[in-house]
């Protein structure tokens, strides 16, 4: 029977000398999903992606990829593809030659997509015969994605695939990933672009200092009992501000950047219930709501809250959120 879990990691620990890169990391990624991996620099994301791609072996813990346990030898499990730390491309070769060289490394009889097909898929068919030397960062990213697609992966592991992409390139890459997932593949995506992750991922794992501080569905991050900052644009800012001040549970933030810029924005902090009440009151007061959005996305807010370094003299904060949020995510 086909396993519903693409990646199952339990208590994974990886050290480099004295540095603990991963500390008892648990990771569960369901098949057919795009799973985000977030964390500040040095959190252990690349190390974790490296383990998934067979670039390193964990010191302890267990890791199962696509239903098969990962052994102690360095080797990528079959069906896994992707890149970490940018796509590996050879500037003296053309886009087509890069992919052809890679295709030539595939075992005989292995599932391999057509070179023209994957170039078309990532929108690089027109520059197939151009040397990669002249490619922009975004084009290289897309070619790296094409190289990963060449192997028809069942698990695609990508590190910052949206780096350098313009809006149309981003749209193209999102389309490719969504199609891949629709066909049953699983994608693990590491990125600092919260908008990308929110647009693509159903679940995320947040790492900080080598530990998992959250893992679960995105909507759990915007839990109703957590306060968030919102911005509200209305037809009558002054009247809206007055209503907000009178609404219980809503705290108007006067000194925000948006207000300081002179925008007709109301910035306030509230839980979801208070937010609902405020909007109802604003509408009842005949004030038209033109825009309502969180100042920072729930994911970004959670990221900042969960990964902030402890101030001097304070205890490490990541222990507590790790426990609470992991529970929440389950």
């Amino acid at each position: 029977m086909e396993n519903a879990v693409a990646v199952r990691g339990l208590g994974i620990t990886k050290t480099f000398g004295d540095i603990v890169a991963l500390d008892q990391v648990d990771l569960n990624v369901a098949r057919g999903r795009i799973h985000g991996l977030v964390g500040p620099n040095g959190a252990g994301k690349t190390t974790l992606l490296g383990l998934l791609l067979g670039l390193a072996v964990a010191d302890s813990g267990s890791l199962e990829i696509l239903g098969d346990p990962v052994g102690r030898t360095l080797a990528a499990p079959d069906g896994v593809s992707g890149f970490v730390d940018g796509p590996g491309l050879y500037p003296t070769l053309t886009a087509k030659q890069n992919l052809a060289a890679l295709a030539g490394l595939r075992p005989r009889g292995a599932r391999t997509a057509g070179i023209g097909e994957v170039l078309e898929e990532v929108g690089l068919a027109m520059v197939a015969d151009d040397k990669v030397r002249g490619f922009s960062l975004g084009m290289r990213q897309r070619l790296g994605l094409a190289a990963a697609l060449l192997t028809r992966p069942r698990l695609l592991v990508l590190d910052e695939p949206a780096n350098g992409l313009d809006p149309s390139g981003k749209k193209q890459v999102h389309g490719v990933l969504n199609r891949l997932v629709a066909d049953g593949a699983t994608v693990i995506l590491s990125s600092h672009r919260m908008d990308d992750l929110e647009a693509l991922c159903s679940e995320v794992t947040i790492l900080a200092t080598g530990r998992v501080v959250f893992s679960g569905p995105l909507n759990k991050l915007s839990a109703e009992d957590r306060e968030l900052d919102y911005r509200l644009r209305t037809s009558d800012p002054e009247a809206a501000r007055k209503v907000a001040r009178e609404t219980p549970g809503v705290e108007v933030i006067e000194g925000s950047d948006a207000v300081a810029r002179g925008d007709d924005l109301l910035v306030f902090r509230a839980q979801v219930a208070a937010l609902d009440a405020l909007i109802a009151r604003v509408v009842r007061a005949d004030i038209a709501v033109r825009e309502l959005a969180p100042v920072v996305s729930p994911l970004e807010a959670a990221f900042l809250a969960l990964t902030e370094q402890p101030a001097e003299g304070q205890s490490e904060p990541s222990h507590r959120p790790k426990h609470n949020l992991q529970e929440a995510g389950r």
């Binding site: 267990s62 346990p69 052994g71 102690r72 030898t73 080797a75 030539g104 490394l105 075992p107």
Partner: peptide, 27 residues
């Protein structure tokens, strides 16, 4: 699930893709 710390190399026989022949890597 096999435990990495405990699995001896001989027992760990995951179905990893076979390495590419040297001739092709050389090319």
């Amino acid at each position: 699930t096999a435990t990495l710390a405990e699995a001896p190399a001989s027992e760990a026989a995951p179905p990893v893709a076979r390495p590419v022949p040297v001739g092709r890597v050389l090319r």
